[in-house]
Amino acid sequence: MAEKPQISSNTTSANFSSLPVILLLGLFSLPLLVMYAYLFIDTISDTEAGSLIPNEFTLRHWSFLWETKAGKPNIWLVTLNTFIFASCITGVILTVSSMAGYVLSRLNVPARGFFLAGVMVLHAFPSVTLIIAIFIVLQWIGLYNSLIGVILVKAAVELPLGIWLMKGFYDTVPWEIEMAGTVDGASRFTVWRRLVLPQIKPAVMALGLFSFLTGWSEFIMPQVLAPGAKVQVLSVYLAGLIIDDNNFDFGTFKAVGVFYVVPVLILYVFFQKHLMNIYGGGTKG
């Protein structure tokens, strides 16, 4: 069969040269590239004041990896905390929103419209304004300065978005699949677990990744609700470095920054396809 010429975003169309575009984009991206390059170069070198060219190689700035600084928590404990924090948020968000989304999309719940509107309002609500109230509540129930407390709060704040997204994806799954499942003898839970949930797997992946990244980069809540040395996360640790006027060390600050961003980059490399799903909307069968 003869292929018809078609316009596709994947192939270079022949009617204009892409070279000028690449040159232009390269030019505009150059400042960004320089910034990233220096972010890294500065962590492994020393530069004299006022100069741009580094004059000596050093691993001094990375020493936080093998020696704990005075008055600072151990970096590996902090990393572990961040990991636990982000993973638990992901777990809670995925579990709750995949179930709640299904219920809102498919089951006959009383006051569904009100509930959906409420979830939307919660999503639009700036959570920072609640932080003092949450602080008091956590202190009352004894979860202040604990990972559990801040995990619950952060997951709750992120849930409305997750529920809405999941509901939207469930809405695209054809009803017939569910009808077929029930007449095949499956309970409603089995239908959800074995038939419907697999249809929206890409969305679940995307939401999971999204939640993990949100958790990984969250700063204000751990800073206010769990600042203690044992429960610190990387963002709080990083902030602690720069507000410490006595041992001001810009190189270390940058090194921790690089250390902080590397897992995110790795995740992006492996999962960016899934992450795009959440913005593309809809599953690909």
């Binding site: 054809p174 017939e176 699949i177 009808m179 077929a180 499942g181």
Partner: peptide, 10 residues
């Protein structure tokens, strides 16, 4: 039941 859209599990 055989549905119009077949409703096979993709």
């Amino acid at each position: 039941v055989v549905f119009q859209s077949y409703a096979l599990y993709p």
